[in-house]
Design a protein around this nucleic acid. Structure first.
Length: 298
DNA sequence: CATCGCTCTGTTTTCACATG
DNA sequence: CATGTGAAAACAGAGCGATG
């Protein structure tokens, strides 16, 4: 048995089809079939249930899957462990929510220092990114915290203050308009699973307000753009919109303390081996955080 | 999806020969 | 004689395309 057999096995299990797995892995179907068969022979029992639309894991197969995952994890760990600590190289797969204001600083610094590391960055919402980190599809992710998920460790990156954003200026609004009244305007939010959105929903719930209209968007730019156009309100970190406020395009309102504070945390699987690349990345995060904190007290 | 016959490639074994 | 070296032969297995 080879580690490649485990990769083939996992792919077939995932795809539920030998043909699809073969396509994914760049092998020919017959080869994948043979490898699965030899694996079954070695285990002395079938691992899949065959049917006309493909094959699915049987209980024995599911048992093997646990070991297969452990093996590949160990394999990755081994490669990371033997990396040259002076010149880390490789790939770092990370995810981030849309609104991490300080992310460019972190990436910039990291890129300049470790040119041999490729970073792939995907964006998503807290919930989906956390799931991907848990499934080891991502090495880590910047999400809004704190998260409370087993097997996940978190490192605080930034503390952010959420503000309510609307396009009317204070003068336009009635002098005694209360912030709570703004909640009756249409809400512009990220898709479900976003940390800011759930804060907003909690706040509204505590006010006993149900939104008249909720519009979902995929990116921060479109949300802000739509708010500027006067179509509704949203809740985002102050730093993400302070420029627009200076330009007079939006007005920001502080929200009750209970819901105001969010932290951006970097999460990773706590039981995953930390390679040199990831260690340096965390180091960079801490450094940028320290710089930002220092700047605050200047 | 499974099987077959085939090629290609890398590994292991074997053997002749050289060296101290 | 034990040990090392290099080339050739044998073997194993990965992968392919065709086919049932």
């Amino acid at each position: 048995m080879e580690i490649s057999d485990m990769q083939i096995f996992m792919e077939v299990a995932k795809q539920g089809s030998v043909s699809k797995a073969a396509e994914q892995l760049g092998y020919v179907q017959s080869n994948v079939t043979a490898r699965i068969r030899s694996l079954e022979k070695e285990m002395g029992r079938p691992l899949f249930q065959r049917h006309r639309r493909g094959m699915t894991l049987n209980p024995e197969g599911r048992k093997l899957l646990v070991y297969a995952e452990r093996m590949t994890m160990l394999m990755n760990e081994m490669h990371k462990a033997f990396q040259n600590p002076d010149d880390p190289a490789g790939m770092l797969k990370i995810g981030s929510v849309e609104t991490v204001v300080g992310l460019p600083d972190i990436l910039n610094l990291f890129y300049r220092r470790y040119a041999n590391v490729d970073i792939s960055l995907v964006t998503g919402v807290t919930e989906s990114l956390t799931e991907e980190v848990q499934q080891l599809k991502l090495d880590g992710a910047f999400v809004s915290g704190p998260v409370d998920v087993p097997n996940i460790e978190q490192h605080v990156v930034f503390e952010e203050e959420l503000v309510l954003v609307c396009s009317q200026s204070r003068e336009e609004l009635n002098a005694n308009t209360k912030i709570e009244q703004l909640l009756h305007l249409p809400l512009l939010v990220f898709r479900r699973g976003c940390g800011y959105r759930s804060k907003l929903e909690k706040w509204m719930q505590s006010e006993g307000v149900t939104p008249i209209k909720v519009m979902e968007f995929g990116t921060l730019e479109t949300i802000i753009g739509t708010v500027v156009a006067g179509l509704g309100i949203t809740l985002v970190p102050r730093a993400a919109v302070h420029k627009l406020e200076r330009e007079g395009l939006v007005t920001l309102f502080s929200i009750p303390e209970l819901f105001r504070q969010v932290s951006v945390v970097y999460i990773r699987r706590s039981d995953a081996y930390m390679g040199e690349v990831e260690r340096r990345f965390l180091e960079t995060i801490t450094e940028v955080r320290a710089k930002r904190l220092a700047a605050l007290y200047e």
